[in-house]
Design a protein around this nucleic acid. Structure first.
Length: 579
RNA sequence: GGACCUGUGGUGCAGCUCGGAGUGCACGCCGCCCUGUCAAGGCGGAGGUCGCGGGUUCAAAUCCCGUCAGGUCCGCCA
């Protein structure tokens, strides 16, 4: 009983009361989970803290309700024969002859804190402090702390130095929309909250910290999703005198350590796939490798097809095992989904023992029918979906259908990690006809592609890489450009003139003139990793005080107006949209 | 900006298709009873703007329109 959990008020935690303490008189503190009254001579009070529940036997009556905060002093006793509770970790013992001290009374909570019913999330968020008292949130946030601890230990062991970077940063309009903070001392001027510590960590490389990491909060004023909050946490890493290989090794080790700390199992070596292969086989840059259903190619088989709807540069197909049972309305819904994803249409073929069933079936040549019927080892009862389009679009449409038809819940194991490499440097053109960076403008092209930077920029691959787990993008990184000549060429391709580059990134480019080492880095989302490892579909379940999808905080009421005085001090006027 | 799902005592649900009195179930809450329970049990009771507004109708939780809130997704997230 001399462990760290003892305090001035308690000797040990509720879940740790056991036969080892038999006969001793101990105090525990916690919340009343349940009271079972048997007349005026006997009351059972279950006392709960995050470690568990212990039963206190009180002679006589006691005025407590669930969620009262109590300090119970009693004698640890083996339960009478036949009354042990196997479902309780402390079920062999109980506290007898108890004194119950009410440390604080409590109103009945707005929802039950046991796990038997699922509570509406809006109610949970409004009373988050009560929701946190429940077992799932206790478990999730403690797993998160375990992950943080493991990541720090792994990086510390590899000689990384943890450094904090500013939350108040300079606006560098590019990429994600930034949260803006008005300056009181400089009216009319603004800081922004960092969408990531990207530039700061590159400056740390120039500053000679050759291995940096940070568990960093990032803020992006973009619409929220199940896997996206305004503010999220990344393990941010950067190192000098390294290549992609080194960074992949660092991060793989750190992630493996975190996963092992949670699951007890070290993941297999993480497989690697190029971006082009991922798109071709899975129709996405974040493939979920837990299930098959790879995208097949029918371009050759349909090269001379008479079916107009299937005349396209690329004909891609997906086998849906057992999908022949889908009703016509289900297939219509799939077609609608494909259209919403940008496809001109979706052709479907039921594979039966007697051939293909489809509105298009009788228009196919025998060779075409055979190609469809044998796609990906198809057999009777399967469904084959076909999209004819530009290669990338056909793959992406089928990739999205693949996930919606076949993917298990993200947290349902096994855990399949994947490095996706050789991303394109540019993802296309903006409305001004300028190229758009796929990662960020400081990403190093692959050396062998550098000569095509001006002549065929969309074909240029970069030294950028993503880490993917079960179809979720955990994070991304790249080798950075550290040479001014290459940076100038990339800026020029992006339509960023020298003047603009100087005004936006001048301090970074300036720093690079004074001896920037070759460097590379990575960042991945701890919210997402935690969610997957605890089996949650939603990162709100691993965040203590998350926002709703519309960006509000149901507990605090944020965002809210501020006082006229605050506005005056900031020289701001609040303009409300017309009612 | 768009699509879809949800909204019924404090909580979780049913009722909604096919309109007919706020009807039902479980938990919780209050009172009484009960000396070995642990989802304790028994008896009794309180508790409702059916999210909100409008429309149709003799009559709306139920049908229609709008709106708000929560969620999932598309756009967005270098």
């Amino acid at each position: 009983m001399s462990s760290y959990e003892a305090t001035s008020l308690r000797d040990l935690q509720c879940g740790h009361v056991g036969v080892e303490q038999e006969g001793r008189r101990v105090s525990v503190c916690g919340w009343v989970a349940k009271r079972r009254e048997h007349g005026e001579h006997l009351v059972f009070v279950d006392v709960r803290d995050w470690t568990g529940v212990v039963q206190a036997v009180v002679p006589g009556t006691v005025e407590v309700r669930p969620e009262f905060v109590v300090r119970v002093t009693g004698t640890v006793s083996r339960r009478p024969a036949g009354t042990a509770n196997e479902r309780l970790a402390t079920g062999l013992v109980e506290l007898t002859d108890c004194d119950v001290e009410v440390l604080n009374a409590a109103e009945p909570p707005p929802f039950p804190l046991d796990e038997r019913v699922e509570i509406d999330e809006a109610v949970r968020l409004r009373y988050r402090y009560l929701d946190l008292r429940r077992e799932p949130m206790q478990r999730n946030l403690r797993v998160r702390a375990t992950i943080n601890r493991a990541l720090r230990a792994a990086l510390d062991a590899q000689g990384f130095c943890e450094i904090e970077t500013p939350l108040l940063w300079a606006p560098t309009p590019e990429g994600a929309r930034e949260f803006v903070v008005p300056s009181r001392l400089h009216p009319g001027e603004f800081y922004v909250l960092p969408q990531s510590p990207q530039i700061a960590k590159q400056l740390l490389m120039v500053g000679g910290f050759d291995r940096y990491y940070q568990i960093a909060r990032c803020l992006r004023d973009e619409d929220l999703r199940a896997d996206r909050q305004f503010e999220f946490t990344q393990l941010d890493v950067e190192a000098s005198f390294v290549t992609q290989t080194d960074v992949v090794r660092f991060v793989s080790q750190a992630v493996a350590a975190a996963a092992a700390a949670v699951t007890g199992e070290t993941p297999d070596e993480i497989v690697t796939m190029t971006w082009a292969e991922a798109l071709d086989r899975y129709g996405t840059d974040k493939p979920d490798l837990r299930f098959g259903m790879e995208i097949g190619d029918l371009t050759t088989a349909f090269a001379t097809t008479a079916v107009q709807a299937l005349v396209a540069p690329s004909v891609k197909a997906l086998r849906v095992p057992g999908g022949a049972e889908m009703t016509r309305s289900r297939l219509d819904a799939l077609t609608e989904q494909a259209r919403a994803l940008g496809a001109k249409g979706l052709a479907w073929f039921r594979v039966t023992a007697s051939g293909l069933e489809s509105p298009l079936a009788r228009h196919l040549s025998p060779d075409e029918s055979a190609a469809v019927a044998t796609l990906d080892g198809a057999g009777a009862g399967d469904l084959v979906l076909v999209v004819a389009d530009e290669h990338d679009r056909a793959c992406r449409v089928l990739g999205a259908l693949r996930v919606s038809l076949g993917a298990p819940p993200v947290g349902a194991g096994p855990y399949r990690y994947l490095w996706v490499t050789e991303f394109p440097l540019f993802e296309g053109f903006d409305e001004d006809g300028d190229l758009v960076a796929a990662h960020h403008p400081f990403t190093m092209p692959l050396p062998e592609d550098l000569e095509r930077l001006e002549s065929d920029p969309l074909s240029v691959r970069s030294q950028a890489y993503d880490l993917v787990l079960n179809g979720w993008e955990l994070g991304s990184g790249s080798v950075r450009i550290h040479r001014a000549d290459i940076q100038s060429r990339v800026f020029r391709a992006l339509g960023i003139g020298e003047e603009e580059a100087a005004s936006r990134f001048g301090f970074l480019l300036g720093a690079f003139r004074y001896g920037a080492p070759p460097h590379a880095g990575f960042a991945f989302g701890i919210d997402r990793l935690t969610a997957i490892l605890v089996g949650e579909e939603n990162i709100r379940e691993v965040i203590a005080f998350p926002k709703t999808q519309s960006g509000t905080d149901l507990m605090t009421g944020a965002p809210k107006g501020i006082t006229a005085r605050q506005l005056r001090e900031l020289r701001l006027g609040a303009v409300r949209p017309p009612a």
